[in-house]
């Protein structure tokens, strides 16, 4: 098996699907000739031609709308938004036009679009390049939202996303693009949408998280194992919408304690939703309130203080300890 970085795995998924299905198209700003500002699509135009892999003029709303129109005619667009903050420019096309196409047409049309965008902080990028906007997307009925934490999942989830008949927003954490390699099978395989993954087994407390925070949480779990002999289970959500509540509830029934860690601002986000569902389905199994470890409710800060703003292992440890010592 090949060792790949997450960005290589992402490209590989697109290559597999472009080769398998002639209706798959790939486009966005700078994705064609040069292969994207992160080179996530490098070489794909050469391999599949400009007809299928192309640069668009600079206009995000048009990229979203183009994808919607193409999907009504049988194509399966992979549309890249160059950086996450620019989805605001395209929100009508993504969150209204694509997400509601099936509903508005009573199923006559559907939008098998995969929107891809880099997201996630810690790289000192310019303003609006890394903002954690997953909450906006998760609050949009009709969209699915996927957020992988490693190369293997990234490839399998992206293939599933491209094959899905509804619009999927696929979020790619910038800090994970090249931070490590892992084994990734060649060719086709899928990781199902809507299935979380227990990435570390434990019995004392459950940490539910996603994206780069999976790695932060794993570090915190190791620290606690060493410092207090605590056994922490870590769940990687992988798909944020639909949420795999069954895996979460099963774990909480075992550990009776939970913390949710997210990179996005605290209020009204994924963590709030996870906690609400734990309350609905497992409250009698809890020994302590379920807490959130999340940044404050501010704008994603300018580069200078992003490292203080994004949860780090120490903050996650503190959150877990509160729940343990309740």
């Amino acid at each position: 098996m090949a060792q790949m970085t997450m960005i290589q795995a992402i490209k590989d998924a697109m290559r597999v699907e472009l080769a398998r299905d002639p209706n798959v198209l790939l486009f966005g700003e700078d994705v064609g000739h040069v292969g994207g500002v992160f080179r996530a699509t490098e070489g794909l135009q050469g391999e599949f031609g400009e007809d299928r892999v192309f640069d668009t003029p600079l206009a995000e709303s048009a990229i979203g709308g183009l994808a919607v129109g193409l999907s009504t005619q049988g194509f399966r667009p992979i549309a890249e938004i160059q950086f996450v903050g620019f989805i605001y420019e395209a929100l009508d096309q993504i969150c209204v036009q694509a997400a509601r196409l099936r509903y508005r047409s009573g199923g006559r049309y559907n939008a098998p679009i995969t929107f891809r965008t880099p997201i996630g902080g810690g790289v000192k990028a310019a303003e609006l390049h890394t903002d954690p906007l997953e909450g906006l997307l998760v609050q949009t009925p009709g969209l699915k939202v996927v957020y992988p934490s490693n190369p293997y999942d990234a490839k399998g989830l992206l293939i599933s996303s491209i094959r899905d008949n509804d619009p999927v927003f696929f979020l790619e954490h910038l800090n994970l693009y090249r931070s490590f390699r892992a084994e990734v099978p060649e060719g086709e395989y899928t990781v199902p949408l809507g299935k979380a993954n227990v990435v570390r087994e434990g019995k004392d407390v459950t940490v539910i998280t996603y994206g780069a925070m999976v790695h932060t949480s794993l570090k915190a779990a190791e620290e606690l194992e060493k410092s207090r002999g605590v056994s922490v289970e870590v769940i990687d959500l992988r798909t944020l919408m639909p949420l795999d509540i069954d895996t979460i509830v099963e774990s909480v029934k075992k550990t009776n304690r939970a913390v949710v860690v997210q990179e996005a601002q605290k209020t009204a986000g994924i963590a709030a939703e996870v906690i609400a569902q734990i309350n609905e389905k497992a409250i009698l199994h809890l020994e302590a309130p379920v807490l959130r470890v999340a940044p404050p409710d501010t704008v994603y800060p300018f580069a200078q203080i992003e490292d203080q703003w994004i949860p780090n292992p120490a903050r996650v440890v503190a959150g877990i300890e509160k729940v343990l010592d309740f």
Binding site: P296, T298, V299, P301, Q304, I305, W309
Partner: peptide
């Protein structure tokens, strides 16, 4: 002077 998260919060 460096920014602080507390200052950031107060600037909202």
């Amino acid at each position: 002077e460096k920014m602080t998260v507390a200052g950031l919060i107060d600037s909202m």
